[in-house]
Amino acid sequence: MTKTPRILEVRANVLKDNDLLARSMRLRFAQTGTLVLNLVSSPGSGKTTLLRRTLLELGQRYRVAALVGDLATDNDAKRLAESGAPVRQIETKTLCHLEAHMIEEHLQNWDLRQIDILFIENVGNLVCPSSWDLGEDLRIALFSTTEGEDKPLKYPTLINTADIALITKIDLAEAVEFDREAMYQNLREMRPGIEILEVSGKRGTGMAAWLERLERALKAKRGQH
């Protein structure tokens, strides 16, 4: 006869250590007035291309910086550094996502009071980064026109945790017969009302609206209107 097991009730969030650290970093970012963005997408959706141009253009008016997660190479960090902005690479090796402690470690010796907007390019992956809060203000999900309109349906967790959806490589929309309406609908099935912007990091299309959105977020964070 088997004994009934002794069961102890506990209530513990599995990612509580990450969540606690993210919360304390969010407080720090609030104190320094630094706007923090977490860019997530599948590999090759255009994060680095868009970020490079964003750093270049915003860098003329604001103090910008970037952390970039990459499995093995520092190619992306080098591309971003061409903008002149401070950039640090986070080599994740086998890890498919960034965690809050990596952000904290890689911010060491950076004076956050000297940074208006901090961009974090997450590892190219549409699944894994969703669960880890990095202390960001906005999570930006990028979907390129070339990936197909059903991507959001295949990765519901990611889209559900995003604040803004960016449709990238919009210059290729016609060539791939991109179905804009289907894309918008698929995004909003899992994230009703999500804000959607269209950009081309390569050609610069839609940059003005994207930059304006970032400026607005920064002002809102600093209580200026």
Partner: peptide, 21 residues
């Protein structure tokens, strides 16, 4: 109708431990 109000389905939590006597 679409609803953004998720009540359950995002859980990732330990709720109990079975332990040795």
């Amino acid at each position: 109708e679409l609803s953004g109000e998720i009540r359950r389905g995002k859980e990732l939590e330990i709720v109990a431990l079975e332990v040795k006597d």
